[in-house]
Each structure stands twice: as structure tokens, then as C-alpha cells.
Design a protein around this nucleic acid. Structure first.
Lengths: 135, 135
DNA sequence: ATGGAAGATAGACTAGTTCCAGATCTTGAC
DNA sequence: GTCAAGATCTGGAACTAGTCTATCTTCCAT
């Protein structure tokens, strides 16, 4: 993802694209992993040494509000997910590593039997071990 | 649940049943809610005024390790669940309140399509609002 | 250029959790 | 019962995640 694309994306979501915000968005959106705020801070600082923790939190929360990313309270601490379309999650129980599972791959039945609550969203959280692929 | 039952349960899970541990287990296991460590501490202190935060954390972690309860990193902070049988979760998005959803009520299909990982456990996490019941 | 709004900053602050070193309690062998 | 060894508990320090605040800067319309 280029700087220009990120700037447009931020604007399209009503976020003024300051240099800091662009740097943060570049890192988070161009990233398939599920970084924590701390990880974002560390990585953004490599490009932009002067940026405070508060700015990172502010920006991530803002992007979350505006629908540019999702926040998940898995593992210890919150983690951010640049994939805002619906999907499920697989969490490696040893390493804590998270991977997305495509929405279509799994399906849930019985949700209509829940009568005493209004459902706005749901996801399947799977725990287990990734099979090693490295030779 | 009686003291005796708790003592036996702890022993059955390889946990030496000290007075403090019994008090904590009595509270957590006889409780359908999903208390935080702080809530546990507060409540146990009513019966056992001298107990340190560290002991509560140690004991809860120990019980978690030994399979007497589960730890969920939902919402802000960790929450403990005395229901160790399989079940799903509904989280009220306003209040953060968590309720268990019986395992049989929902079902997931497609799990066998996951080839690159070994599944040890899974659950459905639903977010939404409880409908008010109070008049 | 000027003034106001939005943005960014550092650092203080809070909450949650773990770590640690010493004090205390249990247990089993005698 | 007594004692040593080991398990447990304690308070507080330390660490981590996240929020808040006061201040300074930038941007933009006028």
C-alpha cells in the first residue's frame, strides 16, 4: 500500500491524514498480522523516531471507531486487525499467534434460538496449534 | 457447594487445599457470573479478611492450570469462568457483562476444512445487547 | 497574517498482574 | 510432640497496558 493510497483511505473515513497517522496506518494496514499497540509503536518508530505512545493509541482507537480496523481483546492485551470484513480467528495456544479464518469456511447454526438478546456480531474463536510448514 | 466438596475437588485436581485456596474456590466455583480477579479478592476478603492479592492471582492461575476453571481475556481484563464444560459466550457490548450460551444451542460446521492446524478447542463469541427483563 | 479548531506531545496516572524475599504454616519422620 | 523440609502466604515493588491532561503545534478559512 502506498502513502497516497493510505492518505486517501484515511480521508475517505473522515480522518485527517497527518504524517503520524499515515505512518501508523501504513504499518497496520499493510500488515496481515495482529499487532498490539506496543508492536505498532515499536515499528512505526523505526520510520518515525519521534512519536509518542499516546498518539499511537489515539490513532488506533480513531481508526477503530471509523471502521478502518478492528480491535480484539484476545490474549493478554488488545490486538488490532486490519481485516475489517467478517472472519473467524485461530489462535495458536503455544505462541499466541493469531490467524484469520475466512468467513465462508465455517458456519454457525442455531443463532436464531437466542431470544433474550439482540446479536450484532459473532465469530468463532478456535484454539490449537499450527502445523509447522518450515522445512 | 460445601467446604468438604471444595476440599475434595481441589485435592482431586492436585491442589493442596489450604484455607485460603478453599475460600477462593468456594467463591469462584459457587458462582455463575464471570468475576475478575479483583472481584474475587473483594468477595473473599469478606470471609477471610487477611488475604493478599498475590494469593488470589496465584490460586486462580493454579486453578486455571489444573482445569478447575477457565480464564477468558474478553472485555478489558481477564475474567474467570467456573464453567469448564464446553459452552459459548455472549457479551453485552454496552455493559461488558458475559453470559454462557449452552453448547448444544449452537453448532459450527466446516471445522474439518481446517487442514493446517490442530484444533484443541473452539467457541462462538457473540456480541450484542441483552434484552431487558426487569419491569 | 490571524484566530480558532484539530492534532500531537510528554509525562503523570491508573489498573491489572507478576515477581520476590522473607514470614508462616503443614507435613511426615522420628 | 518436635523438627526440618517444603509448601504457602504476605506486602510491596516492579512491570505492563492503557488513559488522561496540560501544553504546544499545525492547519485552514478568513
Amino acid at each position: 500500500m502506498t502513502d497516497i493510497e493510505v492518505v486517501d483511505l484515511l480521508r475517505a473515513h473522515g480522518i485527517r491524514p497527518s504524517a503520524h497517522r499515515v505512518a501508523i496506518a501504513l504499518y497496520v494496514l499493510g500488515n496481515e498480522t495482529h499487532p498490539s499497540a506496543e508492536t505498532v509503536l515499536r515499528n512505526v518508530r523505526e520510520r518515525l523516531p519521534v512519536i509518542s505512545r499516546a498518539t499511537v493509541y489515539n490513532t488506533l482507537n480513531l481508526m477503530n471507531e471509523k471502521g478502518l480496523l478492528r480491535q480484539h481483546p484476545f490474549g493478554p492485551g488488545t490486538v488490532f486487525d486490519s481485516n475489517v470484513s467478517r472472519h473467524h480467528h485461530f489462535i495458536d495456544s503455544e505462541t499466541g499467534e493469531m490467524r484469520d479464518v475466512p468467513w465462508e469456511k465455517l458456519s454457525v447454526s442455531g443463532l436464531d434460538s437466542i431470544k433474550d438478546a439482540e446479536i450484532t456480531d459473532y465469530m468463532i474463536v478456535i484454539r490449537g496449534r499450527f502445523k509447522k510448514r518450515e522445512a
